[in-house]
Design a protein around this nucleic acid. Structure first.
Length: 258
DNA sequence: ATGGCTTCGGTGCGAAGA
């Protein structure tokens, strides 16, 4: 089962890219971030015309997540539990097909500028995610937590780590919170398969970041042991970053023996 | 570089992103 996460930076602006990507790369399951669309205006036909089931959790203007799957989606949860007052659309869960896998698609807050209220929100969100992961891990079903984490886990996950030293994506508190998530028993799929350096998933639109390969790795698929046991491959698909009108992120993939 | 692009909403150009 091939599973991808893709921050598409606007589902309507990315209609052509999204259709081409589904045709060429054909994920079994994918989670999308930054759809920047309310659910009523989501261009569902791009996805459903290609035979996918689709669940969305959007809001006006920014944020927004979605999950698509060739198998039916069940028991959908929209929004990260733990704060009824949080109106930002950054979390969606669904069980795939007959229940052999549960996937969580997430768009973790950016947090800049740091320090400040946006950074406080990021750290609080990560604490809430920790609680949700704990909850879900009481089940024996393999779990995949996939999305744009807005976390550079280690210096080797950035082409120029010194440029990110004080940034909300790389500050010590951010990386410590990410380590706490891992210490619950989650495995970074890409690093399980590719411990080597220089693998990125985001390149800024500005200053020639893509042609200079001035990237960062912030899109992650985190697996429970039950899912990691099934992991056969993990990779970043860089080609879509070079297409016309690309997202500034590119898809990250795993293949599970499910 | 004190964001050099790009999205959205809305139809100006500011907010947000990373």
């Amino acid at each position: 089962m091939k599973i991808a996460t893709f921050n598409i930076n606007g589902v309507k602006a990315r209609a052509e890219v999204l259709g081409r990507w589904l045709d060429e790369s054909a994920p079994d399951v994918a989670v999308l971030q930054e759809i920047k669309s309310v659910d009523e205006n989501f261009p569902r036909e791009i996805i459903e015309s290609r035979g996918y089931h689709l669940e969305t959790h959007g809001q006006k203007g920014f944020n927004g997540v979605a999950v698509l799957s060739k198998q039916p989606l069940h028991d959908v949860v929209r929004g990260l539990p733990g704060d009824e007052s949080d109106e930002q659309a950054r979390w969606i869960e669904a069980t795939i097909g007959d229940g052999g896998l549960r996937i969580c698609g997430l768009y973790l807050p950016n947090g800049n500028p740091a320090p400040g209220p946006k950074y406080d929100y990021k750290l609080a969100w990560m604490e809430r995610m920790e609680a949700r992961v704990r909850d879900l891990m009481t089940s024996e079903v393999p779990l995949v937590f996939a999305g744009d984490y807005n976390v550079i886990p280690q210096p080797e996950d950035a082409a120029r780590p010194e440029a990110w030293r004080d940034d909300a994506l790389f500050r010590p508190e951010t990386r410590a919170a990410f380590r706490r998530l891992k210490s619950l028993g989650l495995y970074d799929a890409l690093r399980l398969r590719h411990p080597e350096h220089e693998i990125y998933s985001f390149w800024d639109y500005q200053a020639g970041a893509w042609p200079r390969n001035d990237g960062i790795r912030i899109d992650h698929l985190m697996l429970t042991a039950q899912a990691a046991d099934r992991l056969t491959d993990a990779w970043v698909e860089t080609a879509p970053r070079a297409w016309d009108r690309p997202s500034d992120h590119t898809p990250v993939w795993i293949d599970l023996d499910l």
